[in-house]
Design a protein around this nucleic acid. Structure first.
Lengths: 342, 342
DNA sequence: TTGTATGCGTTATCAC
DNA sequence: GTGATAACGCATACAA
């Protein structure tokens, strides 16, 4: 049986309500009793029961994290750790705790979210999945429950606060960079085409080629994993006119690409240039190191939690669209195209 | 204003307590009213307020995760993702949610834990840090609050349930493996000497050398990061009799080791053999792939949550010491020692 | 089998 | 300034 506010009240010879006011640091309470109560709390080792407090205050100081459905993929990709680190940092600054869903299927996750929301277990939600999935977001909008999305919502873009990169521009710039190295046969290896991020980057890639007046384009979709990259390369090198450069939508995939090319005896830089995304620590470690677009994953998480909390604490907070800057980091996996094509 | 149990009761023409019993699926309630109430819940879209339930039932169905203090290191190391995945899976099976600390210093984390515990926000805790830090564990033991440790406690080993590998044996076997390849100058690169896991592995390494009658031993400590590995190598190669083989306590460190050796023009396998720990996906990706001891990180997390829940749901549950099996996975970073020493 | 009454530990609205 | 008292939404002992 642990110490309650009543115990403290008795010990300090005051009413429970007075203790409550001391905890809330109410201005209309004498310094004298304030001290008296504080000492009592100290001596009894009192800590408020947050559950009871939540019940009456209707706030938990907890943020819910809605994990993507393909958990295995997520947990393997360093992207996840970095987002989490950003979320954690931000939540910590505002003294919010983090609670995450554990479900594996869309349905399970949906049920968990409903429980979190209706069960009043969290004050707001960060959605880590930008899948073309509307049930969840429309449910949350219907409930008028505070939430933000990391990535871009598929629909209702103007009605949802989200934190994203300008993936269109990022991919366009990456492609332009390869064009500036005189590459003309550039292929795109993306993640799942169901992900908005894939679509955005593909569009950026195509726009750059359009602008350069290049007709040839080639793209393959694969999982955000090493295996996905390997398979994609095999596919692309079967082409009649195989590419001399690749835009790869994720470092982990690029790792697979590197390895497969290595096995095929194709030298990176010389015969094939590669630009990937995320700039995870991996990118610096591969042989050769990867040219990669740093999308500031930490900031993605940090801003997500920060803006969610803003929204929770002020329901009038306007809808926002937060774009985290990106930056192309050139390393040796990309080099000028020297060989004359055909 | 959301739907409460009273609304459902009115709607179904029963007492609130009856609704409560239907939710709990009490056997002494007629099928008829059960259905009536269920329909009412359905039609009103009722979901119980879990906070209110927690207040009276004194249970939250939430597990707390106590993160290590060096958060940056943790988040960068794939170990973390895998443990989390195991924890998540296990928690999900028993319908527990996961809540994590966000603090950065020991003191902050300690305060968060006290709040979680006294605030009755979680039913139990998983400690992810096996630091030589006693304040937290002795506090939890004093409170008689359910917790388990991933790794080995520094003290009170017989009074705490923990989930660990047999790190002594694992390191001993790894060393014996190198000995069987005729290496005689084997050095050990460990993580922080404050970590029990480092101590255990170092002891195993030394034991193997003892058994083989080899006097020469050499060890260096570094951070569980790539940089740590790089610095350690530089250090070791300054020796008068530099090693021909290395036991490295973490894949990420090993990656740094590989890279630094590459820069120094020392060929892996030929001139230097390496065995590391964790067998993260990294290990398969490096050039050459790493021989690594798979410690089953997922299981570490899975068993931790599982046994914590057992403990929560049955206070009589005995203290346990759960050893997760390990396995040496041989790849090409290790090879027989051919050159004659000296 | 079901309804009534009470309490879980807080905060908030009154009075005084 | 401080003390009763009533919620918050639920579970449960006790009645009926």
């Amino acid at each position: 049986m642990s110490i309650t506010i009543k115990d403290v009240a008795k010990y300090a010879n005051v009413a429970p309500s007075t203790v409550s006011r001391v905890i809330a640091d109410s201005p209309r309470i004498s310094e004298e009793t304030k001290n008296k109560v504080k000492i009592a709390m100290e001596e009894l080792g009192y800590h408020p029961n947050l559950i009871a407090r939540s019940l009456v205050s209707r706030a938990t100081n907890v943020l819910g994290l809605v994990m993507p459905e393909s958990v295995d993929v997520v947990f393997q990709n360093p992207f996840f750790s970095s987002v989490l680190q950003g979320l954690s940092e931000s939540a910590h600054e505002k003294t919010y705790a983090l609670q995450m869903t554990t479900g594996k299927t869309k349905d399970e996750i949906f049920q968990e979210v409903v429980e979190m929301v209706q069960g009043r277990r969290v004050d707001g939600l960060v959605l880590l999945n930008s899948y073309v999935e509307d049930r969840l977001t429309s449910y949350l909008m219907k409930c008028d429950f505070p939430f933000v999305i990391i990535g871009k919502p598929y629909r209702n873009e103007e009605r949802i606060t989200y934190i994203d990169n300008d993936n269109f521009r990022a991919a366009k710039e990456a492609t332009e960079y390869l064009l500036s190295l005189h590459h003309e046969r550039i292929a795109f290896i993306g993640g799942s085409p169901e992900l908005v991020v894939t679509v955005d980057r593909l569009n950026g890639y195509e726009k750059a080629l359009d602008n350069a007046g290049i007709k040839l384009r080639d793209s393959v979709y694969a999982a955000f994993l090493k295996k996905g990259g390997q398979e994609a390369v095999v596919e692309l090198l079967k082409r009649e006119e195989p590419p001399t450069a690749l835009i790869v939508s994720d470092d982990l995939m690029a790792l697979g690409v590197l390895q497969m090319l290595g096995e095929m005896g194709i030298s990176i830089g010389e015969e094939m240039s590669i630009v990937s995304f995320n700039n995870a620590f991996l990118a610096r470690m591969t042989q050769p190191p990867l040219t990669s677009v740093d999308i500031n994953i930490f900031s993605l998480g940090y801003e997500a939690a920060k803006n969610l909390i803003l929204k929770i604490e002020n329901p009038q907070e306007p809808i926002k669209r937060i774009i985290i800057p990106h930056q192309l980091v050139v390393r040796s996996s990309s080099a000028p195209q020297k060989l004359k094509n055909k």
